[in-house]
Design a binder for these strands. Sequence first.
DNA 1: GTCTATAGGCAGATAGAC
DNA 2: GTCTATCTGCCTATAGAC
Lengths: 198, 198
Amino acid sequence: MARTQGSHSDITGPKIRAVALRLFAQHGYAAVSMRQIAKEVGVQAGALYNYIPDKQSLLVTLMETHMTDVLAAWTARLETLDDADVLHRLEAFTRFHIRFHMERPDAVFIAYMELRNLTPAHFTHIEALRSRYENGLRDILEEGVSAKAFQITDPKITTLAVIGMLNGVMTWYRSGGRLSLEEVETIYWDMVRKAVGA
Amino acid sequence: MARTQGSHSDITGPKIRAVALRLFAQHGYAAVSMRQIAKEVGVQAGALYNYIPDKQSLLVTLMETHMTDVLAAWTARLETLDDADVLHRLEAFTRFHIRFHMERPDAVFIAYMELRNLTPAHFTHIEALRSRYENGLRDILEEGVSAKAFQITDPKITTLAVIGMLNGVMTWYRSGGRLSLEEVETIYWDMVRKAVGA
DNA sequence: GTCTATAGGCAGATAGAC
DNA sequence: GTCTATCTGCCTATAGAC
C-alpha cells in the first residue's frame, strides 16, 4: 500500500502533546489509546514512538509542564508586586489562581486526576512542584498573621481551604454564563478576604 | 477441571459493589477490568454477570447509591434541627458535609471523577441528585440573606465556593495526623462563618 | 520521520455444563 | 449461581521498509 503521508514535521511533537492533553482530560488517561491520539494527530500509532518512549512519559510530561508553568507564572506575577502590602498580594494570588487555571482547564484536570497513574518517583516530583506553588499562598498568609493583618488559627489549613475554594471555580464556571470571570474573581476575593479575617 | 467453588452466595452482590468501589477509586473506572474485580471477589469473571448487566451499570449503581445516601443523611440531620436558627443550620451543614464525606472517600472520589464515563442520561440523573443536595446549602444561605444574618452578594456562587472549600478536606486529611477531624471541622466552620459575613 | 504489519496479551461479554 | 471455554476486538510497543 502507498504511504498516506510524507515525512517531515517539526510540529508533530507539540501536536501530540496538545491532542493528548485534550483526550486525557476528556476521557481519562487509561481510557485513551495511542491509536486515538495518533488518529487525531494525523499519523499512524507507531510514529508516536519517535517522540515519546511510552504512554506514561507522555502523561508525566504534560503534568510537569503544567506545574512548572504555574510556578513560573506566579513567580513572575509576584515580582511585579514586591512592594505591595500583604492584603494586595493575597488579592493578586486569588485573581491569578482563578484566571490562570481557568485558561487551561484540561491541564488542571489532568494534573489533579491522573496523579494515581504516576509511578512513585514521578508522583513525588509532581507533588513537590505543587507544594512549591501552594507555599506561595502559605507565605502570604503567614506574613499576614505576623503583621496582625489576618485572623487565622492555622495557616497551613487555611492555605488548603483557600486553594480548594478557588479550584471549585474550574468545576462549574463556563464563559458566556451569567457572570464574567472578572466578576467571579471579585466575588471569590470577597470571600477569601473575609475568611482570613482581613 | 473441577469447579473450584460451590454455588450459593447471597453476599456476592454486595461484595462485588464493595470491591468495585475500592478498585474504581484506586485505579479509575477505565483502568479496572472485570477480571480484576472477579479475582478480588473470589469468583470467575463470568459470574459477575449474574449480578450486573454490564460494567457501566456497576459504576452507575455505585454513584447513585452514594448520592441518595448523602441526600437521605442530610435530610435526616436537617429534621433534627427544625427549630435551629440559620447560623446553627449552616454550622450543622459544614460539619455534616466534612464528616459524612470523610467516612466514604472512595464513593466521593468516584462520584466526582467518573462523571465523564456516564452516558448523558445517567449523567443528568446523577447531577440532579447532586443539585438537590447542594440546594440544601443554598437554601440556608438564601434564608440567611433574607434574615440579614449573612452578608453575601451571590448565594449561588457562595454555595459552590463553600462546597468546594469543604471538599478540599478529602484531598489532604488523613486520620492520625496533626489534627483530629473535629478540630478540622471547627477550623473550616470558622472560615465558612466569616466568609458568609455572619 | 512515517509507514505497514505484527507480536503478545488483555479487554468485555456470552454459551453451555453442572 | 458458578464454572470453564471462547468469541471478537482492541491494546502497547516493536520491526523493518522506504
